[in-house]
């Protein structure tokens, strides 16, 4: 199972000794991998990784990529939870790899720790942990995620009261990481469903006092693949790394449709 590590080291291209920090413990990292050039089916690779409890899962993945297997593929960018590139399934739950600390995954009672890492579900896998995000962005674009107003543009700023601004603050925190949408059991089985993230981004404009196209977006979300598909399982709210009340936002859109008021 740990063959990849040994083979790569022996091949010479990973010749330098990886650094092992003081106080490191060894954990087992099981990664679901897929290389479309060679694999018909995804496979599991298992690695032993020395790491500090204060390390994040992203550090473990970097260790593997830098010192053990230079072909291990995953997205990451800012590395502290604001760009939304590194959503993945960690121990069966959608998380950002840069925001999960190893110490929160350690098995208690001196038992050995195994961490499983898989790509997010419901989007086609390109390679290893990297999925095709296009269907996700397509749903995002379909809700008209931009300010629409029909009057003359102001010479300076539009006036917006603190209360009006607060009304949609929560849904503007979205980082489009897809953790919510790919945790949704409806989305897994019915890929045509807009999914929570698209609804969150529609919510942002539907409840923005400056916007005048709430009706257009509500019509879009009233569609057969719109908000009524939501079965209120709260997976999305649990998965959101930004703490957005996703299910609540979806409920507010449903209510706006029922009562036609924003």
């Amino acid at each position: 199972m740990s063959a990849p590590a040994e083979e790569k080291t022996a091949s010479g291209s990973r010749g330098s000794e990886p650094p092992v920090p003081d106080g490191a413990i060894t954990v087992t990292v099981k990664i679901r991998r897929f290389n479309p050039e060679f694999d018909d089916e995804p496979r599991w690779d298992t690695f032993e990784v020395p790491a500090l409890p204060s390390d994040r899962v992203l550090n473990l993945l970097h260790y593997l990529k830098w010192y053990v297997d230079g072909t291990l593929t995953f997205r990451r960018s800012c590395a502290h939870g604001i760009c939304g590139s590194d959503a993945m399934r960690i121990n069966g739950v959608n998380r950002l790899a840069c925001k999960v600390l190893l110490k929160d995954l350690l098995a208690g009672g001196g038992k050995a720790t195994t961490i499983t890492i898989e790509p997010i579900k419901g989007l086609p896998v390109h390679k290893d942990l990297l999925v095709d995000m296009e269907p996700f962005f397509e749903a995002y674009r379909a809700v008209k995620p931009y300010l629409i107003s029909y009057g003359n543009e102001p010479t300076r700023e539009r006036i917006q009261s603190a209360a009006d601004r607060e009304r949609f603050d929560d849904t503007t925190k979205c980082i489009l990481c897809a953790a919510c949408t790919t945790s949704c059991p409806v989305y897994w089985t019915e890929g045509s469903y807009f999914g929570p993230a698209a609804i969150v981004n529609a919510h942002r404009f539907i409840f923005d006092s400056r916007d005048e196209a709430a009706e257009e977006r509500l019509d879009i979300l009233n569609d057969v693949d719109g908000v009524w598909r939501c079965r209120t399982t709260f997976n999305c709210t649990d998965a959101c790394p930004r703490g957005i009340q996703v299910t609540k936002a979806i409920q507010e859109v449903k209510r706006a449709l029922l009562f036609k008021r924003t």
Partner: peptide, 13 residues
Amino acid sequence: ETYGALFDRTADG
């Protein structure tokens, strides 16, 4: 702001 950017606001908006 006309593109839709959110900003924190003063008391008078």
